[in-house]
Nucleic acid binder design. Structure first.
Lengths: 341, 341
DNA sequence: CTGAAAGCGCTTACAG
DNA sequence: CTGAAAGCGCTTACAG
């Protein structure tokens, strides 16, 4: 079943058949101006016939653009990363770039980092939490001068563009929403502390409580790690308090789903006996029942924007450091009871 | 804040400082034998000092290996694809390769396919459903002679390695499991018909029913598309039958979760009033309550195996076409009632 | 508007 | 065990 392996056409093939120099073919494929229309048409015709496409490897070696964008992730799982990936992939396609995914364990994967960064020349790199806050990574990127954009970063980096939502305000709003429904004993489940949004959301919760004159009680604020299991553990703790919370605000939807599971185990009706809210509006939010009231952030659009910002700063260094804030939306569904009625 | 951009070291830098030829440096980095130990040590020492790593782009252009592996996906979402990605990424790292993800819409993205395949030289490509059954893709891969491995393919391709589970037998076993629990009216929700496993699973269901002398009734077999929403729609149909099923076998867990949601809406207790089983053992299976009885397939390990098979067939063409079957495990949890008691 | 020459950083094929 | 030369398929920098 040996099929003849067709040799792929090269730029010099196209040049020869089109009767022009390689440089002219190059001009056509890089959309440079000052190419006579007839030559351009001829080049395009020959290229189509030969199914010619410039070699990524050759371009990357010879020129300043590599058409390769890196996406550095910690754990390539979960609905959040899927959305980021989709956003990135869609923009990469439009930009004629290719996405290479590299897994970098949070803190301390310096060997791999150096290896990747010095063997692959990237047009740019997009960073998601928690890697976007790893100074080792940021400095390595600066050292080689690769444009980078960050999604939801925590620490500042004035030389890198970023996209984010106002996690503090969003959590403030969500807490206020619960307070508005008459809740006072509101439990809070933190997120992974290495993701800066966790701290911002906690701050928003605390401030909202305070600004409504409600005491923030330590026994109602418990740790979590963004996972379903950690949400369950946190719920076990919160629901074992002598004075149970009437509502629990989990830092993301997966944990909120965990709270829901525990509530059910304990025979608590949601939202009648316990209100639950999450954050992110992940797929899980509308899969569980009752559907979760949650804060939606437009992750896919944010990732797409991060890609664009990175490309923009590659073209024009002065735009590096642009910060784009996206809007969040409180999705009020079925998991919160109105205690004021 | 302009930081001096360090120029990355090249092979000739290393050669010069180590007092050897470039070819010797090349030998060291490609683990060829016949390099004097003292020269090898010297090269390695200099390379470490310079933080030298061979350029991906240069290697890809000059040599036969590119250290780039492609992962072609239809929709880069969901727990299944996350698992595949993790399996691929972990093996790519060990193999010193880099993964580029390309989105190819099912059937008909021929322009992008040709563009990608003729501009990037891949060491190999891994295909997941439904793209692994797109003959246009398969033939394009053959035409340029790129080693490919397929995950859970449907149509045969003797020249490509593949990993799979016995979907037919797994579905047969699952159906038999339900029958063993005393169920006779068992509804079946099909999967996306473009994923070959859907057909295999349906066949397993049908045969198991028949082999136990149970009539397969058309009104109990309804279409689905692997999504939560399609599971709900299917459940609505199945549960509106005059003779309701006592159990529903959904072709994946997301749809099973949809069935669960509808059951709850209708006030049916699961499993007391309705038993539900899924397939895959996705994260969702243990998030919903009651936890789903489902058929686990080791997706991450399968993806890793696919990667290895692809690499192996790149080294030794005669291994292309290897088929590896993985074991499945019936995870009996809480969503099935025993009617025989 | 166009092209000839050099070079990107490696590997290949050869020679020793 | 080692190296000199050519070449991979493009872009760059330059000249016209």
């Amino acid at each position: 079943m040996a099929i003849a392996k067709s040799k792929t056409a090269t730029m010099s093939d196209v040049a020869r058949l089109a009767g022009v120099s390689m440089k002219t073919v190059s001009r056509v494929f890089n959309n440079e101006k000052y190419v006579a229309k007839d030559k351009k048409d001829k080049v395009l015709a020959v290229a189509t016939e030969l199914n010619y496409h410039p070699s990524l490897q050759a371009r990357g070696l010879a020129g300043s653009k590599t058409y390769i964008v890196g996406f550095f992730v910690d754990v390539p799982s979960g609905d959040y990363i899927s959305k980021v990936l989709r956003g990135l992939l869609s923009r990469a396609e439009e930009a004629g770039c290719h996405l290479v995914v590299e897994v970098l364990k949070d803190r301390g994967d310096e060997v791999k980092l150096k290896q990747v960064l010095s063997s692959i020349r990237f047009d740019g790199v997009v960073l998601s939490p928690p890697i976007c806050d790893d100074v080792v990574v940021l400095n390595a990127l600066r050292a080689i001068g690769v444009p980078a954009a960050r999604i939801a970063p925590g620490i500042p980096a004035k030389d890198m563009s970023e996209v984010h939502i106002d996690d503090y305000q969003a959590a403030f709003d969500m807490t206020e929403f619960l307070i508005g429904k008459g809740h006072r004993r509101i439990g809070f489940i933190k997120g992974n502390p290495n993701h800066s949004c966790s701290l911002d959301r906690e701050r928003g919760y605390v401030r909202a409580m305070q600004s409504h004159g409600i005491e923030v009680r330590n026994e109602l604020v418990v740790p979590g790690m963004f996972s379903f299991a950690s949400g369950k553990e946190a719920a076990e703790i919160l629901l074992s308090r002598t004075e149970k919370p009437t509502a629990i605000f989990a830092c993301n939807d997966e944990m909120a789903a965990g709270v829901l599971a525990v509530a059910r185990e304990k025979g608590l009706a949601v939202p009648a006996d316990l209100s639950i809210v999450g954050f992110d509006d992940d797929a899980i939010a509308t899969i569980v029942s009752p559907a979760l009231t949650t804060m939606r952030q437009p992750v896919e659009a944010m990732a797409a924007a991060a890609f664009d910002l990175m490309m923009q700063s590659a073209d024009d260094e002065s735009t590096a450091g642009t910060r784009v804030e996206h809007a969040y939306v409180l999705c009020d569904r079925e998991s919160v009871a109105d205690l004021t009625q």
